[in-house]
Design a protein around this nucleic acid. Structure first.
Lengths: 192, 192
DNA sequence: TCCCCTTGCCTAAACCCGTTAGGAAGATTT
DNA sequence: AAATCTTCCTAACGGGTTTAGGCAAGGGGA
């Protein structure tokens, strides 16, 4: 009779391990098989805790979105204007550098219902909160949110891909400078 | 004796079909098997024309980068300043909308040697060309290039993911407005 | 304490993908 | 027509995903 020592799997534990695995080997290489190996468990065992590979990936994405929103909210507390902008941006970029796999997961395309129930909503609110420190009217506020969101996402993606590696100045300097530039732009937003 | 009608495969034809397939079903679902099915050929037959799946994907990426650079160069011819900015940005965004699979491919991370030999280099030059219409000194020119690149990439990614779908104004309006804002920013770049 | 039943992990099996090795049927050259 | 090259094939291996069905571990009630 085989000794059957249980591994103690739960959905949360599986998803968390998936997130860690993503940070180590890349989100796209996170697979039920690899995860099973990590838990020293047969693949089929995971399917009691996670519906399928897609479900696993979605759960990791939701975890990452939650963590990011938490950090962003904390960073924004008690700050306004330029300080808030820099703090928020820093959270975003630091998270991507600390947790590349989770960050990649956070960009997984979610189906609309899942997305609506995710922390993505909180993100949008936090972005708008930053802009309260500046003087922007209705639609321009949305435009500004989109400018910041696009810039953050694009910059971090390019930096992650090594797009800034082969010409000076180094990425962090551009990051600092461009946040100054954007702060200045927001303070002095061009009216039509 | 089976009738052996040949499919007429060549590397280019395979890669081009791969690009079309990417636009139809998504770059991440482009697979030797699917491509073989499309040519009504056995999978192994592809391996005479393409080293492996990774090679296939890389070649599609290079094709997309080339096409994009061609279009960008054409759009920039005879334009400067705001006009050049808007034209270039339009090429980028239109390409992403017309050819989502190819566009996704263009963002594939290439190994350094491949990247250096790719049309990515041309892109960098074209971006700098845009900035000749504005008055920017040394490092700030690089920062500005990075700002534009980040914004383009981020905006298109967010739009593709439907990130702008559930609150007005519609994406195209933000796009136009933000290009105006960026033009204004470049003309009146904040000095330190 | 014993039984039972829920739960956790297992085996087995089907199916798809990627990749390589080696063979046979077209096409091309001589 | 013979020789050769090229194109596509069959066969096979390893690995990933998923489902169905089974046995054992551990907690609750008698």
């Amino acid at each position: 009779m085989m000794m059957m020592v249980r591994a103690g799997l739960t959905t949360e534990r599986v998803v968390l391990a998936g997130a860690e695995l993503a940070d180590e080997i890349g989100f796209d290489r996170v697979t039920p098989s690899e995860l099973a190996r990590r838990f020293d468990v047969k693949v089929a065992s995971l399917y009691s805790h996670v519906k399928n590979a897609h479900d696993l990936r979605t759960r990791i994405a939701l975890l990452a979105l939650d963590e990011l929103a938490d950090r962003a909210a904390a960073a924004l507390a008690g700050r306004a204007g330029r300080e808030a902008l820099v703090a928020f941006a820093g959270v975003y970029r630091d998270y991507a550098r600390e947790h590349p796999g989770r960050f990649a997961a956070a960009q997984l395309r979610l189906d609309p219902e899942t997305a609506a129930a995710s922390a993505g909503v909180r993100h949008a609110q936090l972005m708008r909160a930053i802009l309260r420190g500046y003087d922007l009217s209705g639609p321009d506020q949305t435009h500004a949110v989109r400018l910041l969101g696009s810039f953050f996402r694009g910059f971090v993606a390019l930096e992650t891909d090594g797009g800034f590696d082969h010409s000076p100045p180094a990425a962090p300097e551009s990051w600092r400078r461009l946040l100054d530039v954007l702060d200045s732009l927001l303070r002095d937003w061009p009216r039509l």
